[in-house]
Design a protein around this nucleic acid. Structure first.
Length: 431
RNA sequence: GGAGGCGUGGCCGAGCGGUUGAAGGCGCUGGUCUUGAAAACCAGUAUCCCGUUACAGGGAUCGAAGGUUCGAAUCCUUCCGCCUCCGCCA
């Protein structure tokens, strides 16, 4: 969330957030009946109430103190008890009102997105994203190149009918060499990031509490996108970002221990509400998919450079596997809720003839840290909020699909990228 | 799942109804001493919020939420987490 105090002192910040994101009213779809004006009015109401309450509490505390003194001296305390009684009644009324306002104000604040950084390109939609760099060669595959779901089906390594029978739409099932390829990709990426990029590997829970979801920003605004276990009050993670970033919730870290760099494999679960009919085929948009996630906890001093490094780490996977890709800077209108800046990695899908997002690398500045109360003690001993970053390093299912499409041969077989061969002990997948 | 124990500041740990935001220690910061460092000694050192140009001042916080009381870290209830023993289990 944003710094409430800064927001009050400079309401322009909120307008800036909205204009950069091409957003009129952050509460529009939240049935909160708020707008920018009423938000600030709410905040004033909040301040007025808290001041009134604190005045009453001051008096109440004074009376209690006085009571003790009088009791000691054996003096009369009846008038004091009386005054407290009326005081408590008034307080109860105000406090009840306050708790409503407080809750509403917090809810409203948690739903304001992060402020896009000055370097984020302006724009309303994904069409205005800016391509920063692109792998030099996009191999010419014949126009008869097939889509990955067809290739996978023909090779008997992908079975969407079986997945549908077991779990319904938007699930996938890998068989034989397909399952092995998936496993090899996971191991390969974890190895690259731990051995070559200095990440610490974590394997964390896939089920998390509502508080964890609030910490990284999925809640309260995006409840509809999540799978929830009602009975236990737990949610399935849509990304390992949630588990890993919350690792340090309510902690104060030493500056010398930063940056912390974590890599984690996890299954990810997304309801994909509102994307009916979109990408219904193949591995692109499933309810469950595997992902390797990179997470940094760092200081504001280096976070923008850190985003460049993290992005390069994700790119390294695609370079090693020799898959054509490009790096795109998201424009303000396309930026995710918690992000201040994001680079997407997109791979070329010769079968689909489309660029497909395979990684999203973002800097969240102190937006998540404030929600999670993660601080660090700087070298002068002062406590400051950390900056958090994360990025896919990379999405396994989409990587799987891009390998099938980019490494397909005319006879329908698929070559295994050289970098992956030590993990698979085979050179091609054929019928 | 059953029985018992425990949750206090960055960490360890005292406090078990009144000026206790909390002893003591460790750690950290500054100082004295030293060529320098260590040791020793002295001083300072929670967070959030309101308020102030800045001070001052005020409020909240001892796992969480309620309750009792003029007054709660201390008493009561519920919940959560951790530990020990038993049961079950990959």
């Amino acid at each position: 969330m944003l710094d409430i105090k800064a927001l009050r002192e400079n309401p322009q910040i909120l307008r800036e957030v909205l204009s950069k994101r091409n957003m009129e009213n952050p509460w529009k779809n939240d049935s909160m009946e708020l707008n920018v004006e009423s938000f600030f009015a709410l905040q004033n109401q909040y301040l007025k109430l808290i001041q009134e309450i604190e005045n009453l509490r001051t008096r109440k505390n004074k009376i209690a103190e006085e009571f003790g003194l009088r009791k000691k001296k054996g003096e009369d305390t009846a008038t004091l008890s009386q005054e407290t009684e009326t005081l408590k009644k008034n307080l109860a009324l105000l406090e009840e009102e306050f708790s409503k306002i407080d809750k509403k104000f917090l809810e409203a604040t948690l739903r304001i997105p992060n402020l896009p950084h000055a370097s984020v390109p302006p724009g309303k939609t994904a069409n205005e994203n800016v391509v920063l760099r692109q792998s030099p060669e996009i191999p010419e595959l014949s126009s008869s190149a097939r889509e990955h779901w067809e290739i996978g089906k023909n090779l008997n390594i992908l079975d969407f009918e079986a997945a549908g029978k077991i779990s319904g739409a938007r699930f996938s099932l890998l068989k034989g060499k397909g399952a092995q390829l998936e496993r090899a990709l996971i191991a390969f990426m974890l190895d690259v990031h731990t051995r070559e990029h200095g990440y610490t590997e974590i394997f964390a829970p896939f089920l998390v509490t509502a508080q964890s979801m609030q910490g990284t920003g999925q809640l309260p605004k995006f409840e509809e996108d999540l799978f929830k276990l009602e009975r236990d009050g737990l949610y399935l993670i849509p990304t390992a970002e949630v588990s890993i970033t919350n690792l340090h919730r309510d902690e104060i870290l030493e500056e010398s221990s930063l940056p912390k760099k974590y890599v984690s494999y996890s299954a990810c679960f997304r309801r994909e509400a509102g994307s009916y009919g979109k990408d219904t085929k193949g591995l692109i948009r499933n309810h469950q998919f595997n992902k390797i996630e990179l997470v940094w906890v760092t200081t504001p001093k280096t976070s923008f450079e850190d985003l460049e490094l993290l992005t390069r780490h994700a790119e390294a996977i695609l370079k090693k596997l020799e898959i054509p890709y490009r790096v795109v800077a998201l424009c303000g209108g396309d930026l995710g809720f918690a992000a201040a800046k994001t680079y997407d990695l997109e791979v070329w899908m010769p079968g689909e003839k489309k660029w497909r997002e395979i990684s999203s690398c973002s800097l969240f500045t102190d937006f998540q840290a404030r929600r999670m109360n993660i601080k660090y003690k700087n070298l002068q001993g002062k406590k400051e909020l950390v900056h958090t970053l994360n990025g896919s390093g990379v999405a396994v299912g989409r990587l799987f699909a891009s390998i099938l499409e980019n490494y397909q041969e005319k006879d329908g077989s698929v070559k295994i990228p050289k970098a992956l061969r030590p993990y698979l002990q085979m050179e091609t997948i054929e019928k």
